[in-house]
Amino acid sequence: MDLETALHVASELAGAIWVTLALAAVTLPLGLILAGLATWARRSRHRALRGVASAYVLAFRSIPLLVQIFVLYYGLSQFAWLRASPVWIVLKDPFACAVIAMSVCAGAYTAEVMRGGLAAVPQGAIEAARALGLSRFKTFLLVTMPIAIRRALPAYSNEIVVTLKSTSLACTITVMELTGVAKDLMSQTFAVIEVFCMVALIYLIINMVLIFLLRLVERLLTPPYQRKPMLAGARRVVSAAKWRSIGAASQKG
């Protein structure tokens, strides 16, 4: 790959990064809101509500995202009355369609993450809060939720990576994000490996930054006496080296 091609590729990819980030930035909060609603509905007293929410989570976790996107973008265009209605302003836009489909899908996956977090809250803590006279709402707000969020964060960072990767599917409905641009560049420049490596690096860096940020959040939510050092791995290596040198010293002596 000569310099001119390299610059061309880099500038094309730089523009596409923002599309990918925008897709993820809109999808993740919407997914969180939907997941919150689904989690609330699944814990509701009404059987019908629980049933609907469970069906939503099961169906949207089982159906491949590409099918969901195509149903929304290509499938709905079949109905003339829909094309005439004001909803069409949103549904004819590929970016909006991608965001809606991805949010609904991410919501279903995140609802499972939330369920896991809530299940990990010790029953004793909730009982203790109730015994102290906190109302059900206050117990949830001050005791259950903080613990649940902390427990759910590692799984949620997984979910973020999945969502970021799923933004690539938007290129199948003409939203030119990173993967879509990469495809065009691969077929234009024939520098397949080089383009792949550059795009892969971009994805990995975005992933790492997001995971790091989430770990910061997790640390902020953990009470100081429970905090583990952020660079636990590095410390382990250092202490292992120290032990080894102590061992070597004692062998010498």
Binding site: V161, T167, V192, V199, L204
Partner: peptide, 15 residues
Amino acid sequence: RGVPPLLVIFLLFFG
């Protein structure tokens, strides 16, 4: 695991 599967498919398809 960090790269979208679609990108892997394009790599293999064109590569």
